[in-house]
Design a protein around this nucleic acid. Structure first.
Lengths: 348, 348
DNA sequence: TTTAGCACTCAACAGCAGAGAGTGCTAACA
DNA sequence: TGTTAGCACTCTCTGCTGTTGAGTGCTAAA
């Protein structure tokens, strides 16, 4: 399906895509001949363009218009014509790292990076929280706030902090709390979150109840919260720069904007989108390649970020298929790197 | 400036506003005579409309168009022609309360209520976090995560939980941590946050250092975090239903939509907007009455919510001046009530 | 004071012509 | 055989025009 194109066809395809990325409108043979010194006449270019259209790399909105790239055309461009080398100016990475190095809070880092990425690319950025399933529980502790009110604090080794206020219908003595904390530390800390499923929790609960001589009801709520805190589906997605999509000419239609914004309002949808990317490295989904119906006219550039060499989350950008791929790719690359480093550092 | 209008003028003004809220376009005399049985001919209505325009309650987009209400017109409508009685169907309040009563987390309650409000009104809703200045610190505790890494947990009596991971360049023994916790509890808990300013904190720090025989540097970062956590300006604003503004015909212009979305993207701006409302009860700002320049073509309906009889935060709605005031007013009223109750209960 | 009648205004819309950009095809050329 | 100039053709876009319709303000009569 992916033919090898001769070098002139490659040059022409590349030129059309680059020009289209800038102008957002169909490109004609004359424009191409003038702006890119291809050393052939417009007529020749026209022939080549007709060929490229037959092969599926280009499309024609109507008979007397120029050509625009098809999804297949962009795919070829991204795979064959864009060098994936880091072409960020030197120093940028250090600057960003320095700028954010004081942040200790993982949530702050994530939303900061989402903003940074959307600023750099001028597209909408999204970042998923570090996946908890492959993290370990680093700390569990309950503390007493008032007579019947406890605060449950959970910290993962990825630095994610989770806390819940729990109201009990019964008072709890300080010694018991301290006993519970020791017990829970022993049973739960340093375990993989994936292993802390309801079965295991129920067992721990039973044992604890037996030792404490307390009613089971007392801790029912506690375990509900606990279970909920690290559900696999509960990955939060941060987005930044929603308003950038309005700058894209392909969203000049109010209906499209509306659809898009509704989409980005729904957290489940973002989850679905960002989790539909299976690749372990930087991955690009162009138009129809996307699984989620509503973004089949968009492109995604998503990278995985790592904490101590384990893949834990995704960071990426969503924009029109007519996207500045080279720039976006390098930005996503850089930012995903920095994000991993910052979180690693913050979670010590 | 606010003349007393005779009853026929009132009826006509009310009819025009109600009709305009539905149709979003200028209202003519014939339409009015047909749809509302005012028992006078269109010609008479025209005369009255000319009067109302002279008085500033109506405007005419161009000579041969109908009239639309001015800001002053809406103001009169809201003040004199809308009954502020709760006209929510009975049971709605109970239903919502039941729906959300399981939520223990204050942040969840707030964002849930923002969503609920935007769903009910079909405008964009915003809620500010409980103001910390008038809250008391209920609990302060540090816990050890790893050798050089601590977690600082702060809980206010409004139920807001704040936590920060702190990395030290020095190890800290468990006894010291326990000593510090006791010390901090003693010095900080149950104090008004407003009183925990940097002066006071510095004093506490000094005393603690002296007793512990530790270097001052060790806790520098700690106090930075601590100070930052409850800054007066740091009130977070939750918004919900951003995409609803796109449904309003007055935002048919892409430029306007863009401006609006950019505005709502900026947290400082939301802060400025919601804090520009000074009233203690339900307050309405119509168009030009708004202080923030960029929303002078919008209206705000904002209520204050209370926790144990103290005003702590604002909840409201932003939409076009052509807003369904009666419905919005009653929704904001109801939701602000429920919000206060839910938080009170959760932070019980 | 109210109302019918009427001339007037203005935005919105449809229809149309012309310009401009771009194509595909053909025939000539190197 | 590949390349190019020329040309007729197509289609969108823009601006102009006339028409329509909703609505007004004024006047004069009831």
């Amino acid at each position: 399906m992916v033919e090898e194109l001769d070098s002139r066809k490659k040059r022409i395809l590349q030129a059309i895509i680059q020009e289209h990325i800038i102008s957002a409108s169909p490109i004609g043979s004359r424009t191409l001949a003038k702006k890119y010194n291809l050393d052939v006449s417009p007529a020749t270019i026209r022939n080549e363009m007709a060929d490229l259209e037959d092969l599926g790399y280009l499309e024609q909105p109507h008979t007397s218009a120029g050509r625009i790239p098809s999804d297949k055309g962009y795919r070829y461009y991204v795979d064959q014509l864009v060098s994936r080398e880091q072409n960020q100016e030197p120093g940028v990475i250090e600057n960003i790292e320095n700028l954010y190095q004081d942040l200790q809070d993982v949530q702050d880092i994530i939303s900061g990076m989402a903003k940074m990425l959307s600023n750099m690319t001028h597209y909408t950025a999204m970042v998923s929280e570090p996946k908890s399933q492959i993290s370990r529980l680093k700390k569990v502790e309950i503390m007493q706030l008032a007579n019947n009110s406890l605060l449950l604090v959970l910290v993962t080794d990825a630095g994610m902090v989770n806390n819940k206020i729990i109201n009990l219908d019964q008072n709890l003595l300080a010694e018991k709390i301290s006993y519970i904390n020791n017990f829970l530390s022993d049973k739960l800390e340093n375990k993989l979150l994936a292993n802390l499923d309801s079965n295991y929790l129920k067992k721990v609960e039973k044992e604890l109840m037996a030792r404490l001589d307390l009613s089971v009801d007392l801790f029912k709520q506690f375990y509900n919260e606990f279970e909920g805190a690290f559900e696999p589906g509960a990955v939060k997605v941060y987005i930044g720069g929603t308003s950038y999509i309005l700058e894209q000419p392909e969203f000049n239609d109010l209906k499209k904007v509306k659809k898009m914004l509704k989409l980005l309002d729904q957290e489940e949808m973002l989850n679905k989108i960002i989790n539909s990317i299976s690749g372990t490295d930087l991955e690009i989904k162009i138009g129809q390649e996307n699984e989620v119906e509503d973004i089949k006219n968009c492109s995604l550039v998503v990278a995985t970020y790592y904490i101590s060499n384990r893949a834990v989350g995704k960071i990426g950008v969503i924009g029109p298929t007519r996207m500045e791929y080279p720039r976006v790719i390098s930005s996503v690359d850089v930012i995903s790197d920095i994000l991993g480093k910052l979180i690693s550092k913050a979670s010590g």
